Simulated scan of single mutants.
Amino acid sequence: MSSSRALRWIPIALLLAAALASRPALADPLPAEPPAAAADADRPWAAGVSKAEQEAATKLFDEATDLLKEAFFKRAVDLYREALTHWDHPAIHFNLAKALMNLDDPAAAYTELEASMRFGGAPLTDDQREQVNRYTKLLYETELAELVIETDEPGAKVTLDGVDLFVGPGKWSGVVRPETTKTLSATKTGFQTQQLQPKLIKGQVNTIQIEMVPLELVTRYVHEFDTWIPWAVLGSGVAILAGGGVMTWQTKKSFDDYDSGVAACNAAAPLSLTTDAGVLVDLSGQVGTCAPTSSLTSKKSQGQTFQTISTIAYAVGGATVATGIVLFIVNRERPITTDEPAPDDSPAAAAPVSVVPYFGPDQAGLTATFGF
């Protein structure tokens, strides 16, 4: 137990010590019962409880009381609770409350003290009833807060720190320890989950009204960035691929022009040669018989340049198209819930993208700029 928590328990411990100073034992025995033949009206706590059940409860009660006297509080609590399954007797609740106070569980102790007064204080003694009144008052004012939870929503499941309380419409009330009360939640299909971390005031009634909000009122569908961006990237990729196609056509045209020029040159400049055997051979129209001009060789060089550009364009265009497809997947519409409605056409985050292809004599590529 922390030092601050121990200090808070000093008033209760002093009160308990003062109450016990005039008593021979820490735990009280079961009060004397009227004869078994007495009418249930005289013993409402025994109504409907068989003699065998009463005897079983009494045996467990005595064992628990011995453990309580020896300060085995946890085991005593277990036996008292088992005894209550046989007989819901006020005196068992009273001693159980004492054991729980020694285990630093004021909320449970308070509940058991109130249960011990279910029949107006009977069959407790006057001294026991006076102890109950003092303990409940001190616990309520110094350690506990009264919590009331309400909801009018049918089917809303309400939990407190993971423990189910009720399903609406309904109401729950009880005492809790503010320091250990963490999360109040309410859930229902089709409604926004409500999660609260209430700040509770000790010694007062703290009322919480839970309002359930339909999801359609707080749900909007958004994209990671503007919907035009994937289209722009995909379109840029297609344009680059189309440019690669144009370069391929230009490549073929340049090479065809070169081949045609060489053939024409050969035809226009017939040559012949005499072999070693003295045979005259006509070489007119054959490749290699013409010395290409600079204008003709430039067509071949131009075709090679176009071929390089088209290869790069296909690679860059394909990568850009793939990027556009990925952006389409990433930018799929998704629902989000907010506390306040937002415009449906506003993206979750603006991320401008600029995609610009470039070509040069020796290189070609694609530049992309993303804004965050």
Rank of each mutant, 00 (worst) to 15 (best):
D256Y: 07
I12F: 11
L144G: 03
R43K: 04
E55L: 07
A71P: 00
T305D: 13
S295A: 15
L16S: 09
Q204S: 10
A41D: 06
R134E: 14
S301N: 11
D152L: 07
D259Y: 11
W9L: 12
R75P: 00
L215K: 14
P29A: 06
A322N: 06
A264R: 12
T338M: 05
L165T: 03
R23I: 04
L283V: 13
A267E: 06
E333W: 07
T297S: 08
G162M: 01
P341D: 08
L184W: 04
L200A: 01
I309E: 04
T151S: 11
T183V: 14
L60Y: 03
G288L: 14
A109M: 00
Y221E: 10
G203S: 03
K98V: 13
A18M: 08
I312Q: 11
P106N: 03
P270Q: 03
K202R: 15
A186D: 05
K98W: 11
T219S: 11
G288R: 12
K252A: 12
Q302A: 09
F61R: 04
T136M: 05
T181M: 04
D344E: 12
G244H: 02
I10K: 13
F370H: 10
L147A: 00
N331K: 13
L280D: 13
G303A: 08
Y80N: 01
E33Q: 15
R8I: 01
S294C: 07
T58E: 09
D66A: 15
W228L: 13
I201R: 12
K171W: 01
E153Q: 13
D259F: 10
F306T: 00
I10V: 12
P35N: 12
S22V: 12
S4L: 12
Q209C: 07
R220V: 09
L67I: 05
D127N: 10
F328W: 08
H89K: 06
A64L: 03
T159N: 09
I336D: 06
V279G: 04
W172T: 04
G190I: 05
P169V: 04
L280N: 13
C265E: 12
S294T: 14
L20G: 11
G190K: 08
T305E: 10
Q195M: 11
A27K: 02
P31E: 05
T248D: 10
L79Q: 02
T58N: 07
L144M: 01
L103F: 04
V355E: 02
D259H: 14
T293C: 07
P357G: 05
T369S: 14
L26I: 13
D42P: 01
A76M: 05
H86N: 09
T248C: 05
G245N: 08
P230N: 12
A364C: 06
F191M: 04
D42R: 14
G203F: 08
A291S: 14
F94R: 00
T187C: 06
Y314M: 09
M117W: 05
T227P: 04
V316P: 01
L30S: 05
Q195G: 03
D127K: 14
A319G: 10
T111L: 12
V281T: 08
V287Q: 13
T251Y: 00
